[in-house]
Design a protein around this nucleic acid. Structure first.
Lengths: 172, 172
DNA sequence: AACACTTATCTTAGTACTGAGTATTATGGC
DNA sequence: GCCATAATACTCAGTACTAAGATAAGTGTT
């Protein structure tokens, strides 16, 4: 049970903390990255939800559609879910008849996921509209700016991945 | 119960779908945005998790730390959670003694959230290291590139927000 | 005053995951 | 071959949310 609100003083006093200007750009970058991603993700999610799929389910379908059969672990690395998550997602797509598992002939632990015929025709039907949706959603940038953004985001992402385990210490 | 894997044919045949080059950049942009965000978010999450907080909880604290008391609805809009979500988050931070609610003197429906004294000193203690962590994580870009990325992401986000309800139709 | 409409928060049920652990199979060193 | 270690997918309990609806209070129109 949360505490009850009090009503003693007028709010809108000065904020208790100020941002160190040395880190202002990094924080700003994080914020705009977060919001741009949220907005794009939401456009994508809306479009996908029309077909009763979650973004993660769609990501699995898309990976298989554009790459062909993949090991569950490969999909997992590509769409960034947990190992339990990929099992769950492939189960659900299997139940819908869009995806099926296939044993690896060389490794009895491993399983491929691949689109069923239904899955292929489903993706052939819906993917172009989804691509147009994303193209629309990114019209805030010109084609040249889009290419610029791709390069910058690639470098940012690569750097952030290799900064694994950063602890924010003072010096490096 | 998912279907059992079969082992009839060798995998690695050609992928069933190809990407329309007209939309290739938009799709690529979406992918690198997704991955850059995921990597930055993960660096941030790791740092925050050391203090037993979720990213959303931390986002509430950060908003209050840098802006002072805010209406629940204002925080909600700022950190992009559902109305149920903000109630839940403020409840949890309240239980921890970091945040408290305060009634609005002018609108009896509305409530401000604000940091408690504990909340302020907690943030004063941990925020600088978190800012350094984000700065480290964004070192894949030079300072100039970071400013460029900020501008591009701002434009991208703004465009994606106003493209609300896009349905991916053929022409505009 | 009464009504419809909107706004702000809270409640509740449901869910899409995560994280930790398990079972099975593969790999490399001896 | 045998053992320890690693890799692969699966299981299961837990959770941080969301979506929809309820409650309560404000606003505007008649």
């Amino acid at each position: 049970m949360p505490t009850q609100p009090t009503d003693v003083n007028v709010p809108r006093e000065a904020p208790p903390g100020k941002v160190d200007p040395a880190y202002a750009d990094a924080l700003k970058l994080f914020t705009v990255l977060y919001r741009a991603h949220a907005a794009m993700h939401e456009r994508s999610r809306e479009d996908i939800a029309r077909h009763g799929l979650t973004p993660a389910e769609f990501a699995v379908l898309e990976a298989l559609y554009h790459r062909g059969p993949l090991l569950l672990g490969e999909i997992q690395a590509k769409i960034l879910v947990s190992s339990g998550g990929i099992t769950y997602l492939v189960d659900r797509l299997d139940e819908r008849g869009l995806v099926t598992r296939r044993a690896s002939p060389t490794d009895r632990r491993a399983r491929y996921a691949e689109l069923t015929e239904n899955g292929v025709s489903f993706m052939r039907e819906i993917f172009p509209a989804h691509a147009r949706c994303l193209a629309r959603a990114s019209e805030g940038l010109s084609p040249a700016e889009r290419r610029q953004a791709i390069d910058l985001l690639r470098a940012l992402g690569k750097g952030a991945e290799t900064a694994k385990g950063c602890r924010g210490e003072e010096a490096g």
